[in-house]
Simulated scan of single mutants.
Amino acid sequence: MDKGRWQQYWHVFQSSRLGSIGAGIILLYLVVAIAAPLVAPFDAEERVAQPFLQPGGDYLLGTNDVGQDIFSEMVFGTRVSLLIGILAAFLSILVGCLVGIVAGYFGGKTDSILMRLVDLVLVVPFLPLMILLAAFIGPSFWNLILVISILSWASPARVIRSQVLTVKTKGFVEAARSIGSSVPTIMGRHILPGVVPIALSQFVMAASHAILIEASLSFLGLGDPLNKSWGTILYYAQARNAFLTDAWVWWVLPPGVMITALVIGFAFTGYSLEEIFNPRLRKG
């Protein structure tokens, strides 16, 4: 795709209010995640005060049941939750692109087999499958990413396949075939650039879903106990009966707000990108 087209996309994105807000939220979280040791006043694993200390003074969100600073847990949890979301989204989009491009380009039996596989993944009840896979594979950082990717690749694959069906009928693709270009060359030089924009918007939406899935699995006790994410913070809060005391105000509510705000940021950015890459969705 030529440089001028990407400059046009960037200009439209800058004029999008939702896109600017969403990108600003994501950028803020990225800064917090990268600078977590500088932002957090304490080590997330360190016992710094009495258990169940209310917010105030050096402890902005109080302490948990073992005396760890909840604000520091939140800051370091940003790094874990965001990293899982981005890596899982990247892997799911990578698989989705591979399946979508192969199915759309070759068509025929290859397309039928791959699309039936996509239909099978999409038709299976999501929540039971998610819990079953997470419990079977076991709790760990990379297993979480694997589970989320297994559950998230099918929808992008279908969208990307539709885009490939459109791109492969273009004149430049037909010209490449007529001069004897190899299949890898056609896919790499002509098909792939045509699906990158839609894959980018799908990646943003997949990251949003991945963060929600990670929080849900961790809250159910199926997350990685060695890495504190927002979901594991909620899990320990529930396990220590924070919902039955006033501790839920500073132990449960902040992680929930953090998850919600980041998902909204990804959603705003994803909607804006879909509007940019699909002219039919643009206003005016």
Rank of each mutant, 00 (worst) to 15 (best):
G223H: 09
Y235V: 00
L234P: 10
I264W: 12
I264M: 15
F243K: 11
P254V: 08
G223Y: 02
Q238P: 00
A261D: 03
G231C: 07
V249T: 14
R240F: 11
W251E: 01
L244A: 11
P254E: 07
S229K: 04
L244R: 14
L222I: 08
A261K: 05
W251A: 03
A237I: 04
V252Q: 11
Y235G: 00
S229M: 02
G221F: 06
L244C: 00
W230F: 08
V257K: 03
G221E: 07
L262D: 10
S229V: 02
A242E: 05
V263L: 12
W250G: 04
P225W: 03
F243G: 13
I259D: 02
M258F: 15
L226D: 13
N241S: 14
W251R: 14
Q238F: 12
V263F: 09
V257F: 15
T232R: 12
Y235K: 06
I264P: 09
V252T: 13
N241L: 14
G223L: 08
A247F: 10
I264E: 03
A239E: 10
P255C: 07
N227E: 12
F243C: 00
Y235S: 09
T260L: 14
P254N: 13
A237V: 03
V263A: 11
P225C: 01
P254M: 10
D224N: 10
D246V: 11
L234H: 06
D224V: 00
V252F: 14
Y235H: 13
L234N: 05
G221V: 05
S229H: 04
I264A: 13
W230L: 07
T232Y: 09
L244P: 04
T232P: 00
A261F: 14
D246A: 15
L244K: 10
G221W: 02
G221Q: 09
T260M: 15
W250H: 14
I259N: 04
W251F: 13
P225N: 05
Y235C: 12
W230V: 12
W230K: 00
P225L: 13
T245M: 11
A239D: 06
K228I: 15
Q238W: 11
R240G: 02
V257T: 10
R240Q: 13
T232D: 01
L262C: 05
I259G: 00
A247S: 14
L262H: 02
W250A: 10
G223K: 01
L222V: 04
G223R: 13
G231R: 06
